[in-house]
Design a protein around this nucleic acid. Structure first.
Lengths: 190, 190
DNA sequence: CCAGAATCGGAGTGATCGCTCCGATAAGTC
DNA sequence: GACTTATCGGAGCGATCACTCCGATTCTGG
């Protein structure tokens, strides 16, 4: 669905260099916010992108807008990945694979869990895409008997957010074992 | 153990007004950081405490020191609560009650989950107190067969941190159902 | 190739933050 | 009550941040 829009919704198409710089800024913003956290300065993003500060602020009139653009991009990628798994032959494995993958991303990318937590509240457009794809993944896994039927999408989102945030601090085996506890809780039993 | 030290470790005892102000600052800091997050300014804390900024900085030479003091105070209270439950007649219920209670606190108090995440890494003195009490709670619940034996303290800490952070966004029924999923995963089965 | 317009770059602005410094003030001692 | 001394209060400092403004630069249609 809603691709990570390369150009804004304006009427006129962007000039060639403008579009090039816009993409450079977005890419640099992802890297910087992942590495240094969302408190990194806009100037740092501009330096990483190899452009002036003015350029950053013309494309994204506010730091919040820049952050939201990064979030939207991330959520779109996650939504695509979820959609790609909806046609897997084993729905249960698809669900747990996706969960594990998202948590793995969050462990190294700082801005991802922030994006996820916002997805439940804000960013309606592309947050919905993720939600819908995840809902499909969940209900297929439930129909296959791999996930208990009495959990809903909101709970799964909450668990995903919590696991992603915890993964920023818990590494290696600890993270895997904690995730397995959650998975055992999600599996159908009794 | 290690009580939330009302005075610092200096040789001289504090003057009466100094100790009074120190407590006012600590109390105000807890409230402000819970309500506005840890990015709230030191001046806001001073205003809430009804003292000047200089007073805040004499007692806590750095904002980080002030935050750490709040964390230590919180962790001590949590450790006490855990210790109080170690002698309960039903070790399983004690463990899950404690888990639920901590997550409930975190849902309303912003600084708590931050304190928890730091407890695993930093703040060695009072973080150990919590860890030890939680370890007792866990092993007693495991001996009673209420919690599976193949989870360790680090995993439980990670789950506690993740659930607490998620609880800041997930409210009411969603939080309860997500927590129950984790609990089912923690219970012994098979 | 050229003119006009869109875009760029970064010095500068105002606000805020953590923190310092020192005259005013209040506590403790006799 | 007076003297000493620890403590208080808040104006001020330097650094940083998000954001603006405008001359220089680059693109694009003709």
């Amino acid at each position: 669905m809603t691709r990570p829009q390369p150009q804004p919704r304006t009427g006129r198409p962007l000039r060639a260099d403008a579009l090039r710089n816009r993409l450079k800024v977005l890419e640099a913003a992802e890297e910087v916010f992942d590495a240094r956290g969302t408190t990194a300065s806009t100037e740092e993003v501009a330096r990483a992108a190899g452009v002036g500060i003015g350029t950053v602020f013309r494309h994204f009139p506010t730091k919040e807008a820049l952050l939201e653009a990064v979030y939207v991009s991330r959520l779109c990628k996650l939504a695509e990945e979820a959609e790609a798994l909806t046609s897997a032959e084993d729905p249960g494995a698809a669900f747990f694979t996706y969960f594990t993958r998202v948590v793995g991303y969050a462990a190294t990318k700082n801005a991802l869990s922030a994006a996820l937590t916002e997805a439940g509240v804000d960013v309606p457009e592309s947050g919905q895409g993720l939600k819908q794809a995840l809902a499909t993944l969940l209900s297929r896994a439930q129909d296959a008997g791999a996930v208990r039927g009495d959990v809903g999408l909101p709970e799964v989102m909450a668990l995903l957010v919590g696991a992603s945030q915890a993964a920023e601090r818990a590494h290696g085996e600890v993270r895997d074992r904690a995730l397995n506890v959650v998975f055992d809780g999600l599996r159908a039993h009794r």
